[in-house]
């Protein structure tokens, strides 16, 4: 499924945070969105998934979602958004309950998603018993269980420590390579962007508009931390947004 962003602009109470965003996200492509804080990256992601009405413009889906897809546009949240009173399996069952009446299908989806994220033996644990990395794996398993057409990830690794982030980055890369899912990945971490995305969209500071789109020519499966080519691209992205980040940092109010 392709996603088309057409002339998107958004303002909160008259404060313009996004303007004139046009972008085509191809099927099977992962696009990272980076930019200084307050540039409206998360706002843009909410607009893409229909959680926020843009003041101008619209998002269009091209093509039907694949068979078996229960929720075409599926989010992975920064703070995981797990229900603390439900077990790991229970959290996943919740998002399936309204979409499939077939209990066997439900159980199969839960098991597949949990095995894929290596969480099967933790299925009866409660989120509070899990580490941050494991909680985000539950968030990912929940997203996979509905067989999404597109994954919308809002800084999924920024609540985690550096080591866990490194581990999960590899898992994300493997997941993207294996499932060929369409993805939008919002992050302020340039390293995550060059490791996981096919294309990186750099936004300017508020009101955010597209400054540059950078292709990452290395195949996902060949990307490693410390690869010189990725390092060069990361440097280039940083030079793009560094001055914007300094200016954004010195602004008084941030609406995001």
């Amino acid at each position: 499924m392709q996603l088309e962003l057409a002339g998107i602009a958004h303002a909160y109470d008259g404060l313009e945070v996004l303007s004139g965003i046009d972008l085509m996200i191809k099927s099977g492509e992962v696009v990272a969105i980076i930019g200084p804080s307050g540039c409206g990256k998360s706002t843009l992601l909410q607009i893409i998934g229909g959680l926020l009405k843009p003041t101008q413009g619209a998002v269009f889906q091209h093509g039907a979602p694949p068979a078996g897809c229960l929720n075409p546009l599926t989010y992975v949240f920064q703070d995981f958004a797990l229900l603390p009173w439900r077990t790991v399996a229970g959290n996943i069952r919740l998002v399936l309950s309204d979409h499939t009446r077939d209990a066997a299908d439900r159980d199969a989806r839960i098991e597949t998603a949990l095995r894929q994220t290596k969480l099967w033996e933790f299925r009866d644990a409660f989120p509070t018993q899990l580490s941050g990395g494991m909680r985000q794996r539950v968030g990912i398993a929940r997203a996979l269980a509905v067989s999404p057409a597109a994954l919308l990830m809002d800084e999924p690794l920024s609540a985690l420590d550096a080591q866990t982030r490194e581990l999960l980055m590899d898992e994300f890369a493997a997941l993207f390579a294996a499932t060929r899912v369409t993805g939008v990945y919002v992050t302020h971490n340039l390293n995550e962007a060059v490791r996981l995305a096919h294309r990186v969209v750099a936004l300017s500071r508020r009101p955010g508009c597209i400054r540059e789109i950078v292709e990452i020519p290395v195949p996902l499966s060949e990307r490693r931390s410390g690869l010189p080519e990725l390092g060069r691209l990361e440097q280039h992205l940083w030079s793009l947004i560094r001055d914007e980040a300094i200016a954004a940092d010195r602004e008084l109010t941030h609406a995001e």
Partner: peptide, 22 residues
């Protein structure tokens, strides 16, 4: 937490499920 409600909406949960489960 607002994100829990957002989560429910983003998975297209029914209003009744949102009420009873979240």
């Amino acid at each position: 937490q607002r994100t829990l409600i957002r989560m429910g909406q983003s998975f297209n949960l029914k209003k009744s499920t949102m009420l009873t489960s979240i």
